[in-house]
Amino acid sequence: MAAISAKNEDWKLKLLRGSFLTAAILFILFPLYWMVITSFKTEGELFANQQTFFPQDITLQYYLDPIEGIFSPNNPFMQFFINSTIVSFASTLLCLTIGAFSAYSLARFKMKGKRNERLSFLILTARMLPPIVIVVPLYLIMQKIGLLNTLWAMLIVYTGFNLPFVVWMLKAFFEEIPESLEESAMIDGSSRFMAFVKIILPLALPGLVATSIFTIILTWNEFLFAMFLLNNTDVMTLPAGISTFITQFKTNWGALTAAATISILPVLIFSFLVQKHLVKGMTMGAVKG
């Protein structure tokens, strides 16, 4: 009896899993598929009464056309792409340099009165702050000091705003490395700081790489600050730039989806590289994945 009911349940569970898998795959992939194929459809097909699930004549005009294609020199898209690349990589580098030292300090030095825990939470509250609270005064400040519409403004802002994330992530990675390693180096006469640089940093390299990739993706996707602080197409990052494609009175869906498709490619590649650390990254090290 028991065996039969167990088998029965097993069958039900399998069906449930199978249908969940199928539904999840369809639900997740369909919007992306739709975005990609829309970028290859001709305008006639896009506005036709009969929607097509596979483009009838594949066109590359939204990518390569010398006038409206996003890769043409007349189109600001490539500039957005370059700006995003510069800002993401530069701010990530800066953020990791500053963040690694602080993370190490918070991970290792156990001060009395839980001072470190309090500091960690103080840093976390900066992450909880809604950016809109900061961005309006920041806009006025940047205007005053003449940094509005410059990539310098974005570099400063992104470095600061990704810091809490970087510190928490790296803290979690450092805590996984046994402290005895530095202690033995220090017994051999190395200073604490050198022990950190020579022993801990190389050991934490996978963590540093994963954290960098997450930070790059966060910066790559950020829209609110970019939209407030950049009003000039020469300096716009991808999200800010792409949003200007919509607010024009007629939306060019072909170009918009083409731009969206190209803009997510680096993110997709990068996110596969951090698969293993994903849960940790998403929870800032609070849950080990």
Binding site: W34, F223, P239, T257
Partner: peptide, 29 residues
């Protein structure tokens, strides 16, 4: 096999996600 699929949505910029849904939710097309 599912993991690589599931990480896609959360890695995308919310802006791009919104654009795709705007296209799909469009009244006429």
């Amino acid at each position: 096999y599912l993991r690589w699929l599931l990480i896609i949505p959360m890695m995308l910029s919310p802006l791009v996600v919104a654009i795709v849904f705007k296209l799909m939710l469009h009244t006429e097309m």
